[in-house]
Amino acid sequence: MATASAAVRRDWLVGYTMVAPVVLGSLAFVVLPLGMVVWYSLHEWNVLANTFTFVGAENYQRMASDPGLADALAATVWFSIGLVVVNIALALLLAVLLNQKLPGTTTFRTFFFSPVVVSLVAWTIVWSFLLQADGGINGFLEQAGVQGPNWLRHPTTAMIAVIIVQVFKNVGLNMILFLAALQGVPEELQEAARLDGAGAWRRFRSITLPLISPTILLVSIITIVGSLEVFAQIDVLTGGGPGNSTTVLVYYLYQQAFRFNEFGYASALAVLLFVIVLVLTLLQWQSRKRWVFHEV
């Protein structure tokens, strides 16, 4: 470093200048607010009563004995796992189908992508109609001779319904990412494998999947992080119920902050949420060496 020439130093300066906006922006709009959240989490803060009292780690101790939080964490785990698995599987399936260059591909692609641009409110409301006990879905099942469940009133089906509605809303984006990755897989490799007598499934597993594994990593990170932010859909569809079965962490946090006016405790939950996201991302990033085919 000490020996860096003037030219190299000039290059450094360009580098700092180029990253300056986003670095300063991150400091001001990400790191600083996060720091403030940590600070709030050490206080008991009732916005209405306008009390702001330093309580040390009390909010964190409270977490350990909060049964609501334990339920919320369990719901979050189920929700996130379900969402990521279903989302990625469906996105991959759609992308593979759309990559077959079938007639009508352009139209289908638009169909699958369209919910991404539709307003969340309209989307959730029409699904809440469809998921009623006597709604469109059960009407359809009845035609097929199946007695449909009362989707939003049983813990398991409510969770499934929330996941499915969320997947349909956003799977189009992941589908596009996979589609893009699939189009980057050289045809020649496929062709060579076909000549070697490899079947379609075999080719998919040993050529396509490894080649798009970096995209799978990125998509799963984005989806997991996104799954921890799902709020409005749960609010409209189940309101966190039945019981507490669909009260996920971010919904719980929102309740604490904006319904119960417990900003201090909500801030501590926010810190917990951040740590969870951070750890998950690090784990995924660490594990990439084992299953992601090639490195950047």
């Binding site: 709009f29 709030y40 932010e229 946090l253 951070l278």
Partner: peptide
């Protein structure tokens, strides 16, 4: 900078 990827907007809206 990457930290920003990990922060849900509900977390920082008040600050």
């Amino acid at each position: 900078v990457l930290v920003g990827l990990l922060v849900p907007s509900e977390v920082t809206i008040v600050p």
